[in-house]
Structure formats: structure tokens, C-alpha cells
Design a protein around this nucleic acid. Structure first.
Lengths: 121, 121
DNA sequence: ACTACTGTATTAAGCATCTAATACAGTAAT
DNA sequence: ATTACTGTATTAGATGCTTAATACAGTAGT
């Protein structure tokens, strides 16, 4: 079952974040072997090259370690995982606040709407 | 001074939203004449064709009325403007909640972080 | 040794976006 | 009428993203 993706954003950035979330949430634990590029690509329903691009970026960030011919595994640096989570949360939060302010929403209004939206899921 | 834009999203969608916000916020009032495509493009620092694409979409949405050879003006349908604002807020809100939940944030945590972030601007 | 799996690299094609440079028809003011 | 401004259309080129089809070198298990 292919992952549901947003057409307006590059696919590789979206699958990148999906895998980041799996690591952050502990679905992929520190030291765990990652599924192969081909496997992930197949699961996500994207081209292996696209998934490869995302995995290369994961390596650059440091969240995964690559063994050239023997797969990838999640970093054991739990502090890095934590800071990565914080970064993602902070980015989303800033983006959200900026846009809600641009739309002329007051803080209390936003919080009220947020409470409503949160229940519906 | 060119508008600050996000490289990961199509420019025409971003300038579209910028103009929507000007209408929603009342900076461009109902019935007002809009700056010309060339003028907006120059202000935003984008190609006139790109701005044209955004303006065409504004017309499709109904937020502006086009007089073929004599410029554009903001709709006088204030109800439409309001519903457009609601739509933008709702979309942002849903997107935000989905991502914060994916990142494993609880509702209270989100609200606390939101309060903090809000003050800093 | 053989097999099946790794990550990686390359080439080609299709597609959307963006920019640039023009051109045209109609409006408004002079 | 002339001038300066509208929105609109067209053509071309550059770039980035995505897919597809291969190929290669190294590892692990048998």
C-alpha cells in the first residue's frame, strides 16, 4: 500500500520525513537495521532512485549509518535522535504560527480551533 | 524588495496565497483595484508569467474579477472572502495537527509550545 | 563457489515550474 | 489620434524532480 503523499512537495523530502518519524517514534530503534532501499521504495510506491536520495540525506543528517554493501542501520546516538525530533517540531511550530498570524488569527482563537481539530482525530 | 518565498513550493502557489491574505486581511478591500500583473510581479520579484498564473487562479476562485483589458478588482462578495479565510485556516490547522500527532506530541505539549512560540513574534 | 542480497552509479526520458522576450487587442486619459 | 496602460498568448530555454532500466562491487549464508 503506497504512502499517501502531497503532490506539491518533492517526494524525496516527504519519504525522508516519514522515515525520520519512524526513527523518532521508536518504530525503528537505535541500532536496528533499516529495510533496504528497494524494500522501502516498494512499500512507499516510489522509484528506488527517489528513496535512495532520501536515504542519502538520512545518512548526511546522521540518523542512519550506512554499510556500503550491507544495508543501513539506525544511529545509536539517542541524543541526536532527540535533537532531530525537537528540530522537526520547532520547524512545524514556527511555520504554523507565522501563517496563522498572517491570516489574522489571535492566539486564543488558534488555541480554541486547535482543541476542536485535535478531538476529531 | 522581493517577497521571501519557500524554495520547496511552487512560486505561483505562494504568491497566490500572499495576495489572498491581502484580500482577507482587508489590505485590498472589496471593490478595490488590484495592482497590475506586471506591478505585482515586479514587487514580488518574480516573472510576470508566474504572477499571471497566480492571478488567473484568483479569478477562478472568485476572489477577484477580471476586466479583460482594464485590470482586476477585488470581489464585493464579502461572504466569499470570509469562507476563503476559513478554508485557509482550516487547511493549515489540519495539516499542523496531523504532523504534530505523527511526531508524537500530546495536545497539552503542543499548546504549551504554541504559547511560547507565539510570544517570540 | 554459488546465490541472493546490499548500496551505488549512470543514462535517458517525461514532466512541471520558472524565466525571458515578444506580440496583440482593448481601455482610458490626453 | 496618440500614448500608456491593461490582461493575455506564445515560444523557447533552463532547471529540478521522478521514473525506468541497467550495471557493478562487496557482503552474508548456503
Amino acid at each position: 500500500m503506497p504512502w499517501i503523499l502531497d503532490n506539491n512537495l518533492p517526494i524525496y523530502t516527504q519519504v525522508l520525513e516519514r522515515i525520520e518519524i519512524r526513527i523518532i517514534s521508536g518504530e525503528y530503534k537505535p541500532g536496528d537495521k533499516l529495510p533496504s532501499v528497494r524494500e522501502l521504495a516498494s512499500e512507499a510506491g516510489v522509484n528506488p532512485n527517489t528513496m535512495q536520495k532520501a536515504c542519502t540525506e538520512l545518512e548526511r543528517i546522521g540518523l542512519v549509518i550506512t554499510q556500503r554493501t550491507n544495508g543501513r542501520s539506525v544511529t545509536t546516538d539517542e541524543e541526536l535522535i532527540r535533537s532531530c525530533k525537537d528540530r522537526l517540531i520547532r520547524n512545524r511550530m514556527q511555520d504554523f504560527v507565522i501563517h496563522m498570524q498572517a491570516l489574522g488569527c489571535g492566539k486564543e482563537t488558534v488555541i480554541t480551533l486547535l482543541q476542536q481539530e485535535w478531538e476529531e482525530n
